[in-house]
């Protein structure tokens, strides 16, 4: 007969199960959705105004004390650069870049500034397993380098290809990305450096909800000047920075296939099964065990202990 008594058996499986309970019960918190802070700030970017002067890049470099660029900020040959066939993207050394696009049938090129869009429900934040990211009530998505382990899941998760990584740092590699000038400006209610520097006011800074009205007004009051879409109003659950344009967005390098829901919504189905597996599996499989082994020998474990006692 079995030497494993019922009590021991339950204790064993409970210990195993309980050890695991810790982690996933926290995962249950992932449910629920977040629409953004009501008074969060944002920036409306009007692509029709941008003339590609790159002053915002210079402003960002100065404000964020970034390393010296490879080329001067008034060198417009950067617009012709291609890396792996791709136009420039933000890196650990440049939190914002301006690219040039040539929309079909347009006389003038179109310029687009790229930086962190400060999502309402950021994918980087929700994918981070040490919670290094924070969406502040002011609307910025900021990052705490002190807890970052360097898994770079946020770079995988970001639908806009924004975060850069200081791969060349040996002892303290970290994520680097636009933080809305949170530390130096946003916290005090001031617009970020790029916005302030722009001679054309391509970017308008304000409360996100106010700016959304302005964006709609501009589209309405200037018939034929804009395509009827605000990129970032709904994309991935809404972004703090959003765009209006005179050319279709895909021709300005925007990914127009992004889901309208936050990225984390894709993951919620999976997160929902976690507590289920945790609670149902132990019962299910111990049940199987009892059924499968009823009336049979309990296997070598017991054979051994039986033998030991025979000595």
């Amino acid at each position: 007969m079995s030497k494993i008594t019922r009590r021991k058996f339950l204790a064993g499986s409970a210990a195993g199960g309980a050890a695991m309970m810790l982690a996933p019960s926290k995962n249950a918190l992932a449910a629920g959705s977040f629409e953004g802070f009501p008074d969060g700030m944002g920036v409306l970017v009007d692509l029709t105004r941008c003339v590609g002067c790159r002053t915002c890049e210079a402003a960002c470099n100065t404000e964020q004390k970034l390393p010296e660029p490879a080329k001067p900020f008034d060198d417009y040959s950067v617009f012709d650069e291609l890396h792996h066939g791709q136009k420039r993207r933000p890196t650990d050394k440049a939190y914002t870049v301006v690219n040039r696009y040539e929309p079909e049938g347009a006389d003038e090129p179109l310029y687009r500034k790229i930086q962190c869009n400060h999502c309402n429900e950021p994918a980087c934040l929700t994918s981070c397993f040490v919670n290094a990211y924070t969406k502040t009530p002011e609307g910025a998505v900021i990052y705490n380098a002190k807890v970052c382990v360097g898994c770079r899941n946020c770079m995988i998760a970001c639908p806009f290809h924004i975060p850069g990584y200081t791969y060349n740092s040996v002892l303290n590699p970290v994520i680097k990305k636009c933080i809305f000038c949170y530390d130096t400006r946003l916290k005090e209610g001031k617009p970020p450096a790029c916005v302030e520097s722009c001679p054309q006011q391509v970017m308008t800074f304000g409360k996100r909800k106010d700016l959304m009205k302005i964006a709609n007004d501009r589209i309405k009051k200037n018939p034929g000047q804009y395509v009827n879409h605000i990129y970032g109003e709904k994309e991935v659950g809404g972004t703090g920075w959003f765009y209006i344009s005179n050319a279709p967005f895909e021709q300005a390098g925007f990914d127009i296939d992004l889901p309208k829901k936050p990225i984390i919504d894709n993951v919620k189905d999976f997160l929902a099964i976690v507590p289920m597996v945790l609670t149902i599996w132990p019962a299910l499989f111990t049940g199987f065990h009892l059924l499968a082994t009823k009336g049979k020998s309990h296997g070598h474990g017991d054979d051994h202990s039986a033998e030991q006692e025979d000595h």
Partner: peptide, 14 residues
């Protein structure tokens, strides 16, 4: 030290 419980990687890690 620092928990990011909504993250799948958190689950993988644990």
């Amino acid at each position: 030290y620092s928990f990011g419980p909504a993250a799948v990687l958190f689950l993988v890690g644990w």
